[in-house]
Design a binder for these strands. Structure first.
Length: 822
DNA sequence: TACATACAC
DNA sequence: TATGGTGTATGTA
């Protein structure tokens, strides 16, 4: 760890000056600006379901961002909740960005209300600037004058009233009163100048506050004002207003202007001043040699303040010494709690406990923690890299009817497809996210052989994933309160070009083929119904056709469970065929040439497809795109992607395998597809076991994909497999306390485990119990509101599955830890 | 690659 | 009555 620390130290760069600008209570401030009646009244922005933010009055009642509005109302019955108006916030944000760009054209906007700037170059340039270039008219709005000056008797009355109302009701750990007073208070222009004049004493207060901060960390401030800046300093470090109106009260503010100095501190003040002049909103700023520190600093004097940290090691170490780890961006409540259990609450603790960190966390996390403890962060502002995923999700009141769930899923795919296509994106991985009525969140994903963007193909994949989930709880309904669809694994533009090129090659090679003429025709003349949409790629067409066939023959999916509604995917394929004047009333249609085939059996049909592909496709492309196990494993529950002997890359599963399955199912087994794959690993890779009859049925390897099938909520023990009606586990041993009980169902077992584990993750680490907890081979968890964990249900194991704690280290790590202790 | 978790805003 | 939506990073198997 010391070597790592030394390594980090060597990488420390103190030569950059980073500013983090953060608008104060942004949404609420914008609303207050436009509706001054909320200046002194508790107000939140959002809905009864969720608040995005609240003003500082409401915060004194404990009303916070990310709090359900109805709970906020209980805390503060007088709270007014205003709806979000993103257009307005965007517009204001744009105004702010225009200012920021003048100081760093490559500034990074992190969200609507915060941004990082690297002003290193600006500071150099600024040295040669004439004074007038650093001088700005104050206009008619002077926030500091305003905000302090409008601290009227009325406001004080309101505040006292609020204070009295809250007294004794709750612990108020929010900003002190004077901070509440510092909230932006834009008001009508009429009283501005007057307020300004009245605000002199407040500036003295500001000066005092500023001096206090200097006294707190004197070594952190070496950019004390130059002689030129001294007039400004007289009014305090937090106040940039060297206004004529102060030197000559009779002039008032109409002609006021302010000149800023050369230092980073002055630049930040200037930025904040200009933001305020332009938007009538206040911002806070942090100045430091890296992004991590700048972010922490901007929070230190919030609202409407700034804090700068000297770019030297001693100052940074001093600064980090008392800094609570929770203040660092990236350390959330979970990490805070976990580290607290190790006795780590400050960044200094983090450094002192570095040896333990190395044992308990991955190298990535350890290095991250160590860097934090040293105050080392990124110094190069990277522009937002390319988007990696796009998603849409909705929360709703409970939905349990499958048809409604599918309908919603399609709607989400529709919305997502539209957004994806607007950005000309195509992705290969589709993730379904669901949250049940108990707030348990699950994600289920599948990667396709080629990138997609159409609603039809998104839905085809998402629908299959949803179907698995619905079937996993059957006959109980799947009761959801949230559903989302995400597309990721985007192919980059170069790859898209390559893909397009390969299709061109394909079209050229296949000109003589009827199928290719169709594809060409489709490429040149888009279907009117899809005008404006991205035409289907070749792979999309193949996929669409395959799905069509799958739906038609129903050999891939369950033969005994609920029906999957027809997707529009199918209709699009039909549409394509209709363009050719064909119908799909009978027979199998080749997904490559789209000709109806009268092959006997799937094997022969596959042979045709191989032949078709061989004609038009080079070996490497064929292999690359069609042999991936992911081709079908996730898309269709327990479906083969290639036979085990495996050299052929059939579009459809091996005829032999399917024949076996079909024959098996026709013989009376109806449960294969819905349940069989959950135990596939217990037979051979290429076989599966029918739950109903216990016969072994030959399958290909990916039938054993554990992600493909799920168990119902009730645990099914291996012993009970012989009796498909048996759904209870006779006895299981808790991996934590080793007690053995009759568990009624998985939920009861999980509840026990949670209780066991909640006695303290860390305490477990001091016991050899931990090695039991964390034994290898245990898989992930589901979540309940980010806290509770439960056993994974998608894998049947012979022994009771063992619970793994969040962040629990591997067995090797634990062994290392204990060895070190010894 | 699949999935869960943590985190930010 | 009622507890969001979007995106990224990371750990684990």
């Amino acid at each position: 760890m010391d070597e790592m620390a030394a390594d980090l130290e060597r990488s420390r760069d103190l030569n950059r000056t980073i500013v983090h600008v953060d608008m104060d209570a942004f949404f609420a401030a914008v609303e207050t600006r436009d509706r001054p009646e909320f200046t002194h009244r508790p107000m939140g922005v959002g809905s009864l379901s969720m608040l995005s933010t609240s003003n500082y009055v409401a915060r004194r009642f404990g009303v916070r961002a990310a709090m359900p509005g109805f709970i906020a109302k209980r805390l503060c019955p007088e709270l007014t909740i205003l709806p979000l108006n993103f257009k307005k916030y965007e517009a204001v944000s744009k105004e702010v960005c225009e200012i920021l760009a003048e100081y760093d054209p490559r500034f990074v906007r992190m969200s609507l209300d915060e941004a990082y700037l690297d002003i290193t170059q600006h500071l150099k340039d600024r040295e040669t600037w004439p004074k007038d270039r650093r001088t700005f008219a104050s206009g008619s709005f002077l926030s500091r004058g305003c905000e302090k000056g409008t601290e009227s008797a009325h406001l004080k009355v309101v505040e006292v009233k609020l204070e009295q109302e809250r007294e004794g009701e709750m612990h108020d750990d929010t900003e002190p009163v004077q901070n509440y007073m510092k909230q932006p208070m834009p008001t009508a222009k009429g009283n501005v100048e007057e307020s300004c004049m009245e605000s002199n004493s407040e500036h003295i207060t500001n000066e005092h506050e500023s001096q206090v901060s200097l006294n707190c960390s004197p070594e952190l401030f070496d950019d004390l004002p130059t002689q030129e800046e001294s007039s400004c300093a007289e009014l305090g470090h937090d106040s940039p207003l060297t206004l004529d109106c102060f030197s000559d009260p009779h002039q008032k503010a109409a002609t006021a202007s302010v000149t800023f100095g050369l230092s980073a501190h002055e630049v930040a003040k200037e930025i904040r001043f200009r933001i305020e002049q332009k938007t009538r909103l206040t911002a806070s700023a942090g100045i430091a040699p890296n992004m991590l520190l700048a972010k922490v600093c901007s929070d230190r004097k919030k609202p409407n303040g700034q804090f700068d940290l000297l770019p030297n090691k001693a100052a940074i170490h001093q600064f980090m010494k008392e800094l609570p780890i929770r203040k660092v961006s990236g350390i959330g409540k979970v990490t805070e709690k976990l580290l607290k259990a190790l006795g780590i609450t400050t960044c200094q603790d983090l450094f002192e406990q570095r040896a333990i960190l190395a044992m308990l966390f991955s190298e990535t996390s350890t290095r991250h923690f160590l860097a934090i403890s040293l105050g080392i962060g990124a110094t190069r502002l990277e522009r937002n890299s390319e988007r990696k995923s796009m998603s849409t999700e909705r929360t709703f009141s409970e939905i349990r009817k499958p048809e409604e769930l599918y309908s919603l899923c399609q709607k989400l795919c529709h919305d997502l497809a539209r957004e994806v296509q607007e950005e000309s994106l195509q992705g290969r991985t589709i993730t379904l996210k669901i949250k049940n009525i108990n707030f348990e969140v699950k994600t289920r994903a599948v990667s396709l052989p080629s990138a997609v963007s159409s609603e039809e193909l998104l839905f085809a994949a998402a629908r299959d994933l949803l179907k698995i989930e619905i079937e996993s709880v059957h006959p109980q309904p799947l009761r959801l309160r949230l559903m989302g669809v995400r597309l990721s694994s985007f192919v980059d533009r170069m790859d898209q070009k390559k893909q397009q090129k390969s299709i061109d090659v394909f079209l050229n090679i296949g000109n003589k083929e009827e199928c290719c003429s169709f594809l060409q025709q489709e490429t040149r003349v888009p279907c009117p119904q899809r005008a404006g949409q991205t035409p289907l790629s070749f792979f999309q067409r193949v996929e669409a056709a395959r799905k069509n066939e799958a739906a038609q023959h129903d050999v891939f999916t369950s033969t005994c469970t609920g029906q999957v509604p027809d997707g529009s995917l199918q209709s699009s394929t039909v549409q394509a065929k209709n363009n050719r004047g064909e119908t799909k009333e009978s027979g199998l249609v080749c997904p490559v040439c789209f000709q109806k085939q009268n092959c006997k059996g799937l094997y022969n049909f596959n042979m045709h497809i191989d032949h078709c592909l061989g004609l038009i496709y080079s070996e490497d492309v064929h292999s690359k795109h069609l042999s991936s196990p992911a081709c079908y494993s996730g898309l269709i529950n327990s479906v083969c992607c290639s036979n085990q002997s495996g050299n052929q890359n059939h579009i459809l599963p091996s005829g032999k395998d399917l024949s076996t399955l079909e024959a098996h199912q026709e013989e009376g087994c109806c449960t294969f597809a819905s349940q069989g794959n959950s135990t596939n690993k217990e037979v051979s890779e290429s076989d599966t076991c029918c739950h109903s009859c216990q016969q072994t049925v030959s399958l290909c390897s990916c039938a054993g994909d554990e992600s493909a099938g799920l168990l119902p909520d009730t645990i099914v023990s291996p012993e009970s497999l012989a009796d498909p009606t048996a759904c209870e586990v006779p006895s299981m041993t808790c991996p934590v306390c080793h007690c053995s009980q009759l568990w009624v169902d998985l939920q009861a077992f999980n509840t026990h485990l949670d209780v066991c584990l909640n006695q303290g993750i860390i305490s477990k680490l001091t016991s050899h119990e931990c090695t039991d907890m964390c034994s290898p081979g245990v898989s992930g968890t589901s979540t309940k509101a980010g806290e509770k964990t439960s056993l994974r249900r998608n894998k049947l194991v012979e022994k009771p599955p063992m619970k793994k704690a969040k962040y629990s280290p591997s067995k090797n790590t634990i062994d290392k830890f204990f060895n070190a202790q010894v």
